[in-house]
Amino acid sequence: MKIIDHLLVNDDDTPVTFKATPNHGGIYTPQYLVMHYTAATTTLSTVSWFQSTLAKASAHLLIARDGTVTQFAPFNVITWHAGKSQWKGLVGLNQFSIGIEMVNGGRLTKSIGKWICPVDAKRVPDDEVVIAIHKNESSKAAWHDYTEKQLKAAIEISALLVKTYNLKDVVGHEDIAPIRKSDPGPAFPMASFKSKVMGRENDFDEDFVTSADVNIRAGAGTAFATVAPPVPGGTPVRVLKTNANWSFVEVLKSVNGIMDLEGWIASRFIVLEQGVNS
């Protein structure tokens, strides 16, 4: 993909779908990229909401669950995605960041044995549900998973934005407004996502821990056998490499009496160590 005149363009030079939002500010120079979930399960509801003046909210891009992209404003125009927020001494991240929304139900509830998105009351299939502890919380909850196509599109676009606008970092809404917001949540593989987007795929010097009890496998996928009992939440690990939504890790302490344990863990269950205690 390419960026031409602050608009996202496909490889065949056709622009992505553009739906102008009335909810925007003036011209600015972005410094950061902020990732969000929509807290709703359909693309149409978010597109309609961002085109309404009643919303008083918007973002630059929306990435659907099938990977399709909608743009709402040029990247050099302020959108209203961050609200009351601060990061690295900056207050009000709308005027300092590009916002990407991912179609995702966020935190889920259970009703009559079914997982439900509380915002749009849509059912979420069991195989799209992740049970995990949010890095700003202490209890397990159910979260809507992200799709492979969605994450692939987000990585490609985000890396392009970082390169084009020389962005300093990628953060979540939960980082810049931790009391109010929980997106993109623990189902989003922020550690590996950031490494790929910022061009640090082989640079894993930061300390990570598991965010929940998680299986460790012989290969990058659920089809591979587990190599040990589940690794408990809060276990320190070192990420050695990544493959799609999976990370090959070295477990940094004895687990269930096993030393020098290595294997593959779904990246969404790995968070920065400082995030667990924040």
Rank of each mutant, 00 (worst) to 15 (best):
T38E: 06
L54T: 10
L272A: 08
N256M: 10
I155G: 03
D127A: 09
D169S: 09
H6A: 15
S247L: 06
G257N: 02
N243S: 13
Y165D: 05
F193N: 00
G25Y: 09
T21I: 06
G233D: 02
R268P: 00
L61G: 02
D5W: 13
F188N: 06
G67H: 01
I270L: 15
G25V: 09
A154M: 06
A244W: 12
I98M: 04
L160K: 14
R107M: 08
G233T: 03
G257V: 04
S111C: 12
T21W: 00
K110D: 05
T68A: 11
K140C: 10
A64Q: 11
M259H: 13
D175R: 03
S195M: 13
G105K: 04
D13G: 10
S192T: 14
L54G: 07
K241H: 07
F193E: 01
N10C: 10
L61T: 04
Q86C: 12
S192H: 04
A212W: 02
K152W: 07
F204W: 15
K84R: 14
E148I: 15
V197P: 01
R268T: 01
A59L: 01
N215G: 14
Q71D: 11
I116M: 10
T14W: 07
V34W: 00
A153M: 15
V209K: 00
Y32M: 02
T109A: 12
E262S: 11
S158K: 04
A20L: 10
A266V: 11
T242I: 13
W143C: 01
G275T: 09
P229E: 08
R217M: 09
L240I: 11
G219Q: 09
A39V: 00
G199Q: 09
T14R: 12
P184W: 03
N256L: 08
T21H: 01
F248W: 13
A159T: 15
L252T: 03
S278W: 10
S192P: 05
E273W: 01
K19Q: 14
R217W: 02
E273G: 01
K2A: 12
G199H: 09
N76M: 03
F224Q: 02
A244I: 11
D5Y: 14
Q150C: 09
F204Q: 13
Q51N: 14
E174A: 14
D260S: 13
P178F: 03
V103P: 00
G199L: 08
V119A: 11
F224E: 00
E101G: 00
A142F: 07
R107V: 05
R238C: 07
G275I: 05
P230K: 08
K114V: 10
G92Q: 04
N277L: 10
G106P: 08
S247Q: 07
T222P: 03
F50T: 05
I258T: 14
L93E: 01
A218V: 08
R180L: 14
Q51K: 14
H81S: 15
T38D: 03
A64I: 11
D213A: 12
L7E: 15
D169Y: 03
I216E: 00
M259C: 08
T222Y: 13
D11A: 12
D205Q: 15
F188I: 07
Q150W: 05
V77Y: 09
H173E: 07
D207G: 02
G105L: 04
D145W: 05
V255K: 02
W87Q: 05
G92K: 02
